[in-house]
Design a protein around this nucleic acid. Structure first.
Lengths: 250, 250
DNA sequence: GAACCGCTTTGACGCGAGTCAAAGACGGTT
DNA sequence: AACCGTCTTTGACTCGCGTCAAAGCGGTTC
């Protein structure tokens, strides 16, 4: 379902904040030079998708790669018994498979979102002409890999409480990315989606959040906003288990 | 602790099998042309490490990237309270960070292993001269990302039984990679390491394996060998939840 | 305003997996 | 052989989280 147009009012308003978070070291257009950017712009297509919509990851048999400009996406991997999110995508990051191999890309928008999409084959050509682009792609992939492994650690061994706290801190870290101290999170996820991401049930998420609120560590002013009241205490909760910031491949 | 030499007898014996599995689409030397291979060979260094040893991921301040020739490695991510494996590395795959950024690479050899290591800076130069090399690196990263997400799905929602079965099938799939039907696994992992990988306790791993054996789905002829007796039944156990083979980025 | 709908919260209950502890198995050494 | 240390197996118990069920919000529609 196509969006009304690039200049739709409500989304335009959110743009400045997203631009700020494009500082992220992992944007495609942000880590290449001017000439590469021009080449990318020639083949790129700005695309807007509505919250909840799936991202169409191939057009006319050609897979696409998208660089998220603003908004938040979820990468979901579905199996017979439902779907589970395996990661989030924040502005400056990338979705899609540059190789277009068996790519059942399942990406869902959690908020209204905008991304620059590139046809796989055209991008491949550009990255052949401009090695810097391929380099940027590699950086992105490694970044995503690192994030995926972060989640593995969190989901693998932690208790429900620790997972929820880790999620909150992680979300704050990734969402802010430029803004100084975002202690007020505007969660685009509903409880069920958080559960998907953390491998927990809806009820457990709710209970944990309420518990944290009762303990005075967070505040829940509305359904979709969470304030990190006592960040130090939150970090201490997962702190014993702080993982070494590591970026390995594979 | 350095290895005796490249021609040590016990490890040489294992080489042919590993060569076979180098069919893997993700080896560095196996998906580039002859001239690139020569360039890589000039800067590469063959390295042998003993089972249990950590891989030194930087030499003289320069991080390294390694392409595994044979053996099995584990990528471990350690935090305050111990360490957890976040992935395995099979022949044809790659370890280390080509960008050498805050790379606390923690890699441990599960078996005696051999890899070609490349100094980060030299590899970077080569990949600048030969785009194909960078392309291969990108492929590797995406492959690893896909594997990491596989684990996320398995660890996120599955029961202990399902995780163990998934691990066995996964291991068979990745280890064999060329060999026709490896229904007899020679596990280089002890129970504890499997637990690390799956986010389960030693005892649970043991109980599940015994349970599967009692059900006649597998056989445990020795401590480190597992026979997949009824593969169909095993696949049915995780089959309801077969994930779509997907390769997304990020 | 009242009536609906989806989401969230809260409670009660049962099961699965972690933990502690002890007893086997296996491999290596002398 | 008999010893030892390491790894594995088995048992008993506890507790966290999933599940089922019902009630409480918001938000939207008429």
């Amino acid at each position: 379902m196509p969006f009304e147009g690039p200049s739709a009012a409500p989304v335009s308003a959110a743009r400045p904040a997203a631009r700020a978070s494009a500082v992220h070291f992992c944007g495609l257009c942000d880590q290449v030079g001017e000439s590469e950017r021009r080449a990318l712009r020639r083949i790129g297509l700005r695309q807007l998708i509505r919250s909840g919509d799936p991202l169409i990851c191939s057009t006319a048999g050609d897979a696409i790669v998208g660089s998220l400009t603003w908004g938040v996406l979820a990468v979901v991997r579905s199996d017979g018994s439902g779907a589970q999110s395996v990661g989030l995508v924040f502005p400056g990051e990338i979705v899609g498979d540059p190789f277009g191999s068996p790519a059942n890309a399942a990406v869902r928008a959690l908020t209204d979102a905008q991304l620059c999409t590139f046809p796989r084959s055209a991008l491949e050509q550009v990255s052949r002409d401009y090695p810097v682009v391929q380099r940027a792609l590699l950086r992105c992939a490694l970044h995503s890999l690192s994030e995926a492994r972060r989640w593995l650690l969190i989901i693998g061994r932690q208790s429900a409480r620790e997972r929820v706290v880790a999620f909150l801190l992680e979300f704050a870290r990734r969402q802010r990315a430029g803004a100084p101290s975002g202690d007020t999170l505007d969660l685009p996820l509903k409880r069920g989606s958080i559960g998907d991401l953390l491998g927990l049930s809806i009820e457990t998420i709710s209970r944990q959040l309420q518990g944290l609120a009762r303990a005075g560590l967070i505040a829940l002013p509305s359904r979709r906003t969470i304030e990190l009241v006592d960040r130090a205490a939150l970090e201490r909760l997962v702190g014993g288990r702080r993982s070494t910031i590591e970026r390995v491949m594979p």
